[in-house]
Design a protein around this nucleic acid. Structure first.
Lengths: 340, 340
DNA sequence: CTCTGGCACTCGACTGTAGCGAGTGCCAGT
DNA sequence: ACTGGCACTCGCTACAGTCGAGTGCCAGAG
């Protein structure tokens, strides 16, 4: 298993060439395009070892070598050199995001930007409600037995729900309800609200009790239980780049997975510290995505994290470039959010 | 021109068989599977005429016939028999839509339902703002120079925008502003608001003038100019059914078109009367969709129309079934909206 | 012990040929 | 006007042969 420096260099060269050409790379081509300082025969010996260790494999007996998921993993962990963004890319990021007018706008622009820069499928999670605080609650009467509840979070998210009241409630009572819920809940984290909502019911005057009970149910449902996470998606057309070579010829499973919000959230939503996470092929827990890789990271104002974003592409992807781009976009969006 | 009844029957049989089998259909197979009462040779003569008239064509000299766009058009207009929904489908529609909790929920469920029932790509337009009336406007102070404007429309849509005020505005003034805009705008159609908004500025007290000017700009932008139409999409994975035969082997252009909201809106958004619209292949004005057909219709509470919905699939699609499904779903969603 | 050049070998990609069969167009006969 | 028959077309599949990229291995040099 002793992988000396040269073997690592060979692996790196293989990954880089394969990513660039999309064709199995042979020993001769390798020594020609990289300064390895040795002959093809030597490289072949190294390749044999790398193959034995499971870092590369041969599609057919007489073909060149192709990295395995394990090979990509080693490459990402130890071999890739950071690729600084080009000035053009930096400019693109700024130009694209400047002028965003509300949260929806920011998210949409971001996801399109990511898709465009990485030429991959991009996913952006809206700031998670669980990580937001209540900024304001509004009750708008629709009829005497119906209210529209609107919640505005500090992350800019706005959620609404229809509330069916058990009995008609006069306008004055609605005003009271509004005041009460705002007094009690504004400023608190959504994940901390359940006891507060509970108290709200107990403390309210008897004539409001009925309405408040219904309201609290809806509040809990909307804000906590049905953890209403939202996503934006862009760049699915990029899946068709590279002909049918990637994804073993069938986009079916990928497209199916992309329709499952739950799956996507799992992929990009696990906002760990501020690191960028890379999932390569098999490391992925979703069966449909065994042929894909995901690069994701958290984002948020300052050093906090309110949501995740990432891109999905073939395992054969430009990891250094993608990682750099995802990271840069996330940082920039974070700054943008911090301004609010 | 001279298309007697039998020739039409032949065309209908060709369309039905081709849609079912996805293979060019020959004269022998035709007489076997349909009671045409004549021999294959006769059918061949009819086919020759149909081909001359441009309703069918031969992929290769020695292959069977395939309908052309023109053939499908004739089929849809004059030959297809309405296909009533199966009880199972009716039940699916009800079960799927019951329990929707807000507009977002309704739209998402609808689009998934459509995709599932038709096994095609489904698109649903949110109720258009242009066809909505203002139910309530809310101003939430974020800081002394920032307001969050929330507009609630009678169609259930909720839009928000951040408003940057030129100078700090005290809370009392915000209350005044809120009262003013609500008094003036609630109940009016969004498309009719520009003069009202204008008047709003002119009539407001001097100390509110500055803030109101900014506010009115944002109002106009949000509600009228930037006709903020929203869409939901589902079922893209269905594009991969039928192998690579449909869409001449490349999903690329289709996926690209599906990412362009403007394009989709044009396709399904033109809410004509309550008829169902069918666009077949070439009839489509979007180049990328020349290999696709779109079945769309408007929907809305009662007999009004507030938005469009539809499905997109290969020209080789089950038109009668798709039309029936789209129509039924639209009607059901309309009823649902009418309840609010 | 490591690297190198040489050589036999493997096997996929491509080419050309041949046979099959579905399907057609046409024509003469009813 | 319809039908049966027949020659013809042409895509599809199978098969054989060639080519060449790339490998593994080995003996020899440094």
């Amino acid at each position: 298993m002793g992988l000396d420096d040269r073997k690592l260099a060979v692996l790196r060269a293989i990954v880089e060439d394969y990513v660039a050409t999309q064709e199995p790379v042979g020993s001769r081509a390798l020594v020609e395009r990289h300064q390895l300082g040795v002959s093809p025969a030597t490289v072949r010996n190294d390749m044999a070892v790398l193959e034995e260790e499971g870092y590369i494999r041969q599609p057919h007996t007489s073909a060149g070598r192709v990295p395995t998921d394990r090979g990509y993993r080693l490459f990402v962990d130890r071999l890739s050199r950071v690729k600084p963004l080009s000035p053009a890319e930096r400019r693109a990021i700024e130009r694209f995001l400047v002028g965003a007018v509300d949260l929806d706008d920011v998210v949409h622009r971001t996801v399109r930007l990511l898709a465009q820069l990485t030429r991959q499928v991009a996913v952006v999670q809206y700031p998670s409600l669980a990580r937001s605080s209540v900024r304001h609650l509004e009750l708008v009467p629709i009829s005497t037995t119906r209210l529209m509840l609107v919640m505005i979070a500090d992350t800019g998210r706005v959620e609404q729900r229809l509330v069916e009241l058990p009995t008609p409630v006069p306008a004055a009572d609605v005003t009271d309800l509004r005041r009460l819920v705002n007094e009690k809940l504004v400023g608190s984290r959504l994940s901390d609200t359940p006891p507060l909502v509970q108290a709200l019911v107990e403390e309210s005057a008897t004539h409001l009790r009925g309405a408040m009970t219904t309201l609290s149910t809806v509040l809990l449902e909307t804000l906590v239980e049905r953890t209403e996470e939202r996503l934006a998606l862009a760049g699915t057309a990029n899946l068709t780049r590279g002909g049918l070579l990637d994804f073993q010829g069938s986009l079916r499973p990928i497209l199916e997975a992309l329709e499952e919000e739950v799956v996507l959230l799992k992929l990009i939503g696990e906002a760990e510290p501020s690191t960028t996470r890379v999932l390569i092929g098999d490391e992925n827990e979703v069966d449909n995505l065994r042929a894909a890789s995901v690069v994701s990271t958290g984002y948020g104002p300052g050093s906090t994290i309110v949501g995740g974003m990432g891109v999905l592409g073939p395992t054969r992807m430009d990891y250094p470039g993608t990682i750099a781009t995802v990271r840069a976009v996330a940082r920039y969006v974070g700054e943008l959010l911090a301004q609010n």
